[in-house]
Design a protein around this nucleic acid. Structure first.
Lengths: 105, 105
DNA sequence: TCCTTTTATCGTATATTTACGATGATTATA
DNA sequence: TATAATCATCGTAAATATACGATAAAAGGA
């Protein structure tokens, strides 16, 4: 008989780069303001930074900083359009995120 | 014709207390040390704090602090057993976590 | 060319997180 | 009743995150 470990409700079988990437995504989502930005982008795809700044009660510089965190985590994608920057969800990465969670949880 | 918003890859239809709870869980998982503790608990259910301290390269006080964050987020459950405390994954809450993510992503 | 619009970045202040050693509380054991 | 074992909490130092105003960069329009 091998060690009898009762099976858990999740495997968490992940490591290395995949784990780091997943943790960075969790961290990015673990902030109320960034979560609101994500929600806003679902209903306002392609909106520009200024739209998000108008929507949120925080300064433009702060919004820009949060957008960077979301961008670095892979959740959103920015496209420069004239003087503005248009933002969308980064669908491929979100699909990856969902898939990884499905694997480990 | 109503506003033609192309459908996103996720709805993020969540708010209020549910959203706060989910964000707190993301935040708790968004730390490498805490993620490792979660992984350790999958393979060592019922282990005591000292086991986790031996496993990780950080001080006992710090481990205890991380355990508290995971406990507050609902990911783990501690049971006092003599002078020790035995920890397990909090399966019901993890199931809830998985289910919420399935709904919004 | 000059001015406006838009956004990212810089510098910085404050808040939070993360880490540690020390201590106290609790339980078991000699 | 001492003594040991185990762990949470306290106080605190250092690092990181979050927020802001100011400024710079880039593009468009007058």
């Amino acid at each position: 008989m091998s060690a009898n470990i009762p099976e858990a409700c999740c495997t968490l079988e992940i490591s290395g780069e995949r784990q780091e990437k997943l943790i960075a995504m969790f961290k990015a989502l673990g902030n109320p303001t960034r979560f609101e930005i994500m929600k806003f982008l679902v209903t306002h795809p392609g909106c520009i930074t200024g739209d998000i700044v108008s929507f949120l009660p925080i300064a433009q510089a702060t919004v820009s900083q949060h957008l960077r965190v979301l961008r670095d985590a892979g959740f959103i994608k920015g496209t420069v359009a004239g003087t503005a920057t248009s933002y969308c969800l980064y669908e491929e990465n979100i699909v990856w995120f969902r898939s990884e969670i499905g694997d480990v949880f």
